[in-house]
Structures are given as structure tokens and as C-alpha cells.
Design a protein around this nucleic acid. Structure first.
Lengths: 106, 106
DNA sequence: TGATGATATGTCATAAATGACATAGGATGG
DNA sequence: CCATCCTATGTCATTTATGACATATCATCA
């Protein structure tokens, strides 16, 4: 469950989150959507490191840039789910892998 | 597994897919990414209908428009994963629900 | 110390996605 | 037949995401 400090942390990162009350209510779609992205974000970083690949290399594999990969991994709000998923697929993730990460969010 | 006719169908819908050989090879990331979107797309339509909600109503719930919901459900290539996922969350899908749909893709 | 490699942050022009609107197509009842 | 309701398709101005670049921060090691 998300607490107030998490909301602050997210806003510091640049996320535009709704009111605190709404935010603290039983997970709005918005909050859950953000949590989903962050979960994929973390997983991406772990997977990339596990494979001993640099951001630069991953960027090249998917025709992106190092800076964008960095943003993906730091949970920058300008990064889309699309890009996160494509990154994971590029790293060899299976549909089941993705599903596992997503199912673990809450 | 995707066959040639599927590639044609996708291109008719407006998807820009790579070469046939690449496409028919063991699922490129691109193809898998597209299949993922289509799976969510279909699930969205099913869920919305199951709940007896019109595209117009769903659109209002998520501050979108009927035409965009239609595009989501018909697999229009201009629709993002983000929007598909947010739609499903709006319809009350749980993370496990999403995971299930994704895990079933192949 | 500083040099080197990796990651983070800021900015920007371009590309892509979005909501909105108009309108077409389709089904169902009257 | 034709209203009425719903869905699909096309288009477009605006918003948002993207790759690219510069530069900053950080860690490791000689």
C-alpha cells in the first residue's frame, strides 16, 4: 500500500498525482497505473544489470538513447509503458515474465 | 504463432510491420509487442461488453472519447499500451487480471 | 589525485498519441 | 421504411513522448 511519503517521493520525481485523500484511498486507477510503471522500471534495471549490459548497449539494441534508458530506470514520468515493455522484450523477457512482474504489483 | 495472413491483416489495419521473413521468424520483439496490444485490446472489448457499458460511457469514465475507445478495441496502431492499461484499470481490472491476459499471449 | 566508464539530469526539436469532432455503418425495434 | 442507439473510420489541432545532445554525478582503480 502507498503511504504519504511515497506520494511526496513521486512528486519529487515529477509525477503529477491527485489529492492526498484521493491518493490514499483504495488505490485509484491513476496510482495503480503509476505503480505498474515503477514495477516494470525496477524490473528493467535488475534485468539489465543481471545481464551485464550497459544502458548504452541496451539503448543501441532498441534504437533509443542512453539518457532515455536512464529515465526508464529512474521512473521518469515521461516514459511510456510502451517503451518499458519494449525494453523488457528486447532483454528477452517472456510474456510470463511480464505477467509475473505485473501480478506482483499492489 | 503468427502466420502470413496475420501480417496482412495487421498491415491492413495500419500497422507497420517489418519484412515477412523477420516477421515469421521466432517472434521478434516488435511482433510480440503488437500481439500484446491486440490481446489487451480484445480483452478490453470483452470486459466492457460484459459490464454492459457503452464506449461512450467508458470514454467518459476515463476522460477520453468514444472514437478513441473504438480505436482501442479495433486494434488501431495509434493506441498506446498506456491507454489500454488505463482503460482496463478503469473497468476494474486487477493486476492479476492484466497478468493473466499478458501471460496468455504467444 | 585524476582518469575512465557508467549513470543521471536537463533541454529541445521532432514524432507520435490524444481528445474531439464529423460522419459513416450497422443493428434493433416500431 | 426510418428513428434511435451503438460502433467504426477519418481528420486535425494540441499534447505528450522520444531520441539526441550536453553536461553533471558517481564509482572504481591506478
Amino acid at each position: 500500500m502507498m503511504e504519504k511519503t511515497k506520494k511526496n517521493m513521486l512528486e519529487k520525481k515529477g509525477w503529477k498525482v491527485g489529492t492526498t485523500t484521493e491518493f490514499l484511498g483504495l488505490s485509484s486507477e491513476e496510482a495503480r497505473y503509476i505503480e505498474l510503471k515503477l514495477a516494470l522500471s525496477e524490473h528493467l534495471k535488475k534485468q539489465r544489470m543481471k545481464q551485464k549490459i550497459t544502458q548504452e548497449q541496451l539503448a543501441k539494441m532498441m534504437s533509443s538513447s542512453q539518457s532515455r534508458v536512464a529515465k526508464m530506470e529512474t521512473g521518469d514520468p515521461t516514459v511510456s509503458l510502451d517503451l518499458l515493455v519494449r525494453s523488457l522484450l528486447t532483454l528477452g523477457a517472456s510474456e510470463k515474465d511480464l505477467a509475473k512482474v505485473i501480478a506482483a504489483v499492489n
